[in-house]
């Protein structure tokens, strides 16, 4: 669906290239996470992929066609939800959706159903200026689906949302993936990326340092240890054991039998740990 080869980009007055030879490929039905700290080149990459910046070097093919060769039909195929909500404040939620819907020609979603998906159906006829930040975010999110696009770009889709609504947004993204939509997710929230993405790319200083699935990364970069927390002499204690041959580790088995165990965890690395390990950078 998306194929990027040797993508380079330099802003006219900048000294250095913002993007240095990016290469990646995203398949249909995949959720691809683009992770990196601010200023890493995430937004520039997204701007190229959604056809705003055209003076790039290298090749960017979307749905098999080089992006500069697409006409405005391109926007019938992709949906975008920006990080900051961009809505008509004087219009109601329903009017906002219907207004932009009129620009599309293909099969379109029912505006009311979209509002239901994000729990805004009761506020459908309320002016957006009266909406809270979270409500605006949800409307902004769901608008990306209005024309039933094949590829959807999300920039920090859960930022500013309470846990319940954030969970709902994540469920919708998963549901859309199962319907065959391809999703490009830009974020610096590692938990969201871990939960949703089939693969993630770590981008720092305009370079992709690594692309892999979160699960595989966590196993590869984990310590292959088990940490046991237990009570001994009325005190919390902890001990690490190698996962290899754990069933024959007498000390471990003895501990399980004789002490009051509080927790047992395998020591997988978090995506955040792996990011710091591979890039030498913190995310924020």
């Amino acid at each position: 669906m998306i194929e990027v080869k040797d993508l380079m980009f330099k802003y006219p007055k900048a000294k250095e290239k913002t993007l240095k030879e990016l290469n990646f490929k995203i398949d249909k039905g995949e959720i691809f996470g683009f992770l990196g700290p601010s200023g890493a080149g995430k937004s520039t990459t997204q701007k190229i992929l959604i056809g705003i910046l055209k003076d790039y070097l290298g090749s960017v093919k979307i749905l098999g066609k080089e992006i500069i060769n697409w006409n405005t039909d391109f926007y019938e195929k992709i949906g975008v939800s920006f990080e900051l909500p961009n809505l008509y404040h004087k219009l109601t939620a329903l009017e906002n959706l219907d207004f932009v819907k009129s620009f599309y020609s293909g099969k379109k979603e029912d505006s009311k159903k979209l509002l239901e998906m994000v729990g805004l159906e009761k506020n459908a006829d309320v002016k957006v200026s009266k909406y809270s930040k979270g409500m605006k975010m949800r409307l902004n999110f769901v608008r990306a689906f209005i024309h039933n696009p094949d590829i959807v770009f999300f920039d920090e889709p859960t930022s500013g949302l309470d846990p319940l609504n954030a969970k709902n947004i994540k469920n919708i993204i998963m549901e859309k993936k199962h319907q065959g939509k391809t999703i490009f997710l830009t974020t610096h929230n590692m938990t969201v990326a871990d939960e949703l993405c089939d693969r993630v790319a770590f981008i720092v200083d305009g370079e992709i340092k690594l692309i892999d699935s979160p699960k595989k990364l966590k196993i590869e970069h984990g310590k292959r240890n088990i940490k046991v927390e237990y009570i001994d002499k009325n005190k919390f204690q902890e001990k690490d054991f190698a996962l290899k041959g754990i069933g024959y580790n007498d000390e471990y088995i003895k501990l399980l039998r004789e002490k009051e165990i509080k927790t047992i965890h395998t020591q997988e690395a978090t995506l955040e740990d792996i990011f710091v390990q591979t890039t030498g950078r913190k995310l924020l």
């Binding site: 920006f82 961009n86 809505l87 008509y88 932009v100 599309y104 020609s105």
Partner: peptide
Amino acid sequence: EGVLEYLIITPL
């Protein structure tokens, strides 16, 4: 309101 930024990525 940022809507111009949005209109750019519609077929308009």
